[in-house]
Computed example of a mutant assay.
Amino acid sequence: MAIKLEMLRAFRVVAEQGSLAEAAGVLGRTPSAVSMTLAQLEANIGAPLFETDRKNRLTKLGELILAEAVRATDVFDSSTGTIRRLTTSIAGTVRIAAVPSVIATLLPGAIARFRESHPEVRLEISDLDSDSVRQRIRFDQADIGILTASVDEPGEGVTIASDCLGIVYREGGRIARALAESEGPASWSLMRLEPLIANPLCAMVAHDDIAGLLDGCNLEARNTTALLSFVREGLGATILPEGAVPIIGGGTGFVSPADPKTLRELRMICSSDRKLGPAALEFWNTLL
């Protein structure tokens, strides 16, 4: 009889649990069935794997074979997990993690096009900041990620769009009044008129006033909805991309200074360790 994976798994669990009874509980089998499987493995190998019938101490050969059993069962479990993920992606779910401006602007059209040809696929959309998008991809909690990056950052993923960063301010506030009274171009120095509500995008602006405000900032948020709520409440002004304008809403304004003009890129990423399933790959191409 050839050595089978179920023999190696039973042997591994018995060795790890230290008894037939405990192993039987883990495997969901009777102790006699587990004992028979072990006997078949030992008969195939031609030597005992345990020093005693209590199965709590391995022979030298048993220690060597245990290492192979662990390796074989781990590889099998990893492969079956990958197959399940692929099956889910084909007919079940595609998981997308994206920054809020993408969800408000790029995704609706892409979803509409994708659903025309794949109406059976479920789409799960998560609204996150860029660091959280990376984390979702790293831990296989999302198939596709879309994040914000500076144009100067090393290439990460595929660039699908770019837009300008700008100041989001409250209507009726100091920045709004300064803009109404000024005839010249807007400057990042306007941010000195109100407290800065910081977020990770602020660090992308190469302006001395923004750097100084960041050093003394005592209010920071990563969620776009929270940032906009703070601005509307008069807690200060913040920096967001032009792509967020559709979700800015009433009570606030947006201006993009040119000293310097600051671009952000939207980049689409996926895991470098795992291939996209067919449905996820189709959605990837739809976004491209």
Rank of each mutant, 00 (worst) to 15 (best):
Arg174Ala: 15
Cys270Val: 08
Glu220Met: 11
Ala110Gln: 01
Val151Ser: 12
Lys55Cys: 14
Leu41Met: 11
Tyr169Glu: 07
Ala112Val: 13
Glu171Cys: 09
Gly243Met: 00
Gly155Ala: 12
Gln141Trp: 07
Pro257Gly: 02
Glu153Thr: 05
Val168Gly: 08
Glu156Gln: 12
Gly18Arg: 01
Ser132Arg: 13
Pro241Trp: 04
Arg84Trp: 07
Lys275Pro: 09
Glu16Arg: 04
Lys4Tyr: 08
Ala221Met: 04
Thr286Ala: 01
Gly109Gln: 13
Asp259His: 03
Leu41Gln: 11
Val34Ser: 11
Ile160Tyr: 02
Trp188Leu: 08
Asn223Thr: 09
Thr238Leu: 01
Ala10Pro: 08
Asp209Trp: 00
Glu183Gly: 13
Arg264Trp: 00
Val14Pro: 04
Ala98Arg: 02
Asp74Arg: 09
Ala258Pro: 12
Ser150Phe: 06
Pro260Thr: 06
Ile125Val: 15
Pro246Gly: 10
Gln17Trp: 01
Arg136Ser: 11
Pro31Trp: 04
Arg57Thr: 14
Pro48Tyr: 10
Glu22Arg: 14
Thr252Lys: 15
Thr88Leu: 13
Ala97Trp: 08
Ala15Ser: 08
Val245Ile: 12
Ile144Phe: 01
Gly25Asn: 10
Leu235Ser: 15
Ser271Asp: 06
Glu220Thr: 11
Glu42Cys: 07
Gly109Lys: 06
Ala112Met: 09
Tyr169His: 15
Ala149Pro: 08
Met268Lys: 05
Pro257Ile: 10
Glu116Val: 11
Ile125Asn: 13
Ser272Phe: 08
Gly249Cys: 03
Leu213Lys: 08
Ala98Tyr: 02
Arg222Gln: 11
Glu220Asp: 07
Asp163Met: 07
Val13Ile: 15
Ile125Thr: 04
Pro260His: 07
Phe139Arg: 03
Gly249Ser: 05
Leu219Ala: 07
Phe76Leu: 11
Gly157Met: 05
Phe230Glu: 02
Glu220Gly: 09
Asp163Ser: 14
Gly25Ala: 10
Glu171Ala: 10
Val151Phe: 03
Val133Phe: 03
Pro195Asn: 14
Ile137Glu: 05
Ala2Arg: 14
Ala280Glu: 11
Leu213Glu: 04
Leu8Gly: 14
Ile96Gln: 08
Ala149Thr: 14
Glu233His: 03
Pro108Glu: 13
Leu227Gly: 01
Glu156Arg: 14
Val70Gly: 06
Gly109Asp: 11
Ala279Arg: 12
Trp188Gly: 07
Thr252Leu: 15
Gly236Phe: 06
Ile65Trp: 03
Asp131Cys: 06
Thr159Phe: 00
Ile160Asn: 03
Phe139Trp: 07
Gly155Trp: 10
Glu183Thr: 06
Leu61Thr: 06
Leu61Met: 11
Ile210Gly: 04
Glu116Lys: 06
Val158Ser: 11
Cys202Ser: 14
Gly253Asn: 05
Ser117Arg: 04
Gly145Arg: 05
Thr225Asn: 09
Arg9Phe: 05
Ala2Trp: 05
Val231Lys: 03
Ala67Thr: 07
Ile239Asp: 01
Arg232Ser: 09
Ala21Phe: 09
Arg84Ile: 06
Leu201Tyr: 04
